[in-house]
Simulated assay, not measured.
Amino acid sequence: MREIEYRGWDSHNKRWVYGLLLMDAKGHYRIQYDPRRFSVIVDPDSIGEYTGIKDENDKKIYEGDTCEVVKMYPTYGKYFQTDDAYSAERIICVCSFIDGAFRIRRKYLNRRGEEKFEEGSIKKCKVIGNIYENPELLKTE
């Protein structure tokens, strides 16, 4: 069973808090970061669920994280693919919850904004920021 954890931005103390997601009687979203009872109100737009996956540096990947991934593409010869014929591309993606699953996507790739990744095509994944603190990572030239 995977660990259930949420992350949210505590705008009062200007920090990320991690823990259980709650809603109080006034409709505010809170993160309970201490098992005894301590919780703080968080910005609802910043809330992200832990995916259950860690990056290559053992850092937890949350919904809304911006990741740099290395995608491998097969390189074909004239008529067939050779064993070591792969080329790599570094791309910036965002972790999102789409159609009941955590997926990584890049907004500027196509009209739907989704990248299709075949199993085994991602060789490296590193968290480099998130869409709340680092929106400039998603800008195209």
Rank of each mutant, 00 (worst) to 15 (best):
P35R: 11
S39Y: 10
C93E: 14
S46T: 15
R30D: 06
H28M: 03
K123G: 10
Y73C: 03
G48S: 05
V17W: 06
P44F: 04
D58V: 01
I53F: 05
Y33L: 05
E63Q: 15
K126Q: 12
K78T: 07
E136T: 07
Y50K: 01
V127P: 04
K60V: 05
N130R: 00
S11R: 10
N57Y: 15
R30Q: 15
E118Y: 10
Y62P: 00
K126I: 13
K107L: 12
S39F: 07
D83F: 14
G120Q: 06
I92S: 03
Y18T: 01
I61P: 00
Q81S: 12
R90N: 13
Y73T: 07
V94T: 14
I104M: 14
I4C: 01
Y108D: 15
Q81H: 13
V17D: 03
G48V: 02
Y132V: 13
F117E: 11
E63V: 02
F97A: 01
E133L: 15
D58S: 07
Y73I: 04
G8V: 06
G129Y: 09
I128N: 09
V94K: 08
T140K: 04
L138A: 07
T75K: 09
A101Q: 13
I122D: 10
M23K: 13
R15K: 15
P44D: 11
L21I: 05
R2W: 04
V40N: 07
H12Y: 11
R105Y: 13
